[in-house]
């Protein structure tokens, strides 16, 4: 379960950053992204997939979260 730091890039895209792995990728899609449900499976720019726990509101970004590699 890597710790993932989420931040917004200047162009509004979400960046998925794992310091330990030198991984800095854009998030291309996220399963749930609505005011009352956020998280689930995300697909990164390089095609790899991770999953966040599902939250009941979009979190305040930047933020560090745990993600599971799928």
């Amino acid at each position: 379960m890597p710790s993932v730091m989420l931040r917004k890039r200047e162009d509004g895209k979400l960046i998925f950053y794992v310091a330990k792995k030198d991984l800095e990728e854009t998030i291309e899609s996220i399963e749930f992204d609505s005011p009352d449900k956020w998280g689930g499976e995300v697909v990164l720019g390089d095609g790899s997939k991770y999953a966040f726990e599902i939250l009941d509101a979009p979190p305040k970004i930047p933020l560090t979260l745990q993600a599971k590699r799928l």
Binding site: M5, R7, A19, P62
Partner: peptide
């Protein structure tokens, strides 16, 4: 690293 931390 520290910049990312301060952002968060």
């Amino acid at each position: 690293y520290i910049a990312r931390h301060m952002e968060e």
